[in-house]
Design a protein around this nucleic acid. Sequence first.
DNA 1: TCATTAAATTGTT
DNA 2: AACAATTTAATGA
Length: 224
Amino acid sequence: MRVLEDMLALSRWTHELPPDHLDRVRADIVVREFASGAYVCRKGDLASAWIGVIDGLIKLHSLSRSGKSVTFAGIPAGGWFGEGSVLKGEPLKYDVIALRASRIALMPESTFRWLLDTSIAFNQFLLKQLNERLGQFIGMVEHDRLLEPDARVARALAALFNRHLYPVTEAHIQISQEELGYLAGASRQRVNRALQVLGSAGLVKVDYGLITVLDLNGLQSYGT
DNA sequence: TCATTAAATTGTT
DNA sequence: AACAATTTAATGA
């Protein structure tokens, strides 16, 4: 299992931080464990912290009153999120749910704002992150309307391996086909077929509850 | 360590 | 949506 120190080492914004500043960051961050299926935060909660995934997998998800649900994004280990709500001082606009046992870092709003005021590297990181995420959402709208299901699944899977947002070194992710379906906007059955297609194309390897990416570029450009 | 069982996930219709 | 098959995790001998 990964620990906070690994995550800080992987996050680009820590690299140019003076040692004493990094010490404060380390001291301020709270680490919590969540079981699979547990809520990390609920829609409507005041965003009092910037959230990082040290280990595991969480999803940003919204459930309407009538029972319809949408999954906006999956965040694997290495990802930080929630800066939008913290910056605006607004309640969260989505539920945050652990898809499997996860270790979460919570950086208090005061620390977050202090970094914003003192570190150029942190600002550059946030700019990059916001831009990458915008690109992902534009891609989602486009793929949703233009691509066939196999390609949608391929893109949704590739999005979990964005090296700017999630600087992880592993080529595999522990996710069920059902959850990947929520991310791709496809049924579990359709995801199952798509993964078989992608598997025989040599782009991924599918195991029980585990998907290994063999060719990330091929996945990203699949169907175009 | 092995066998049994329940739960989760997958493959198919 | 339903069903069967497979894999994993947990339990106790």
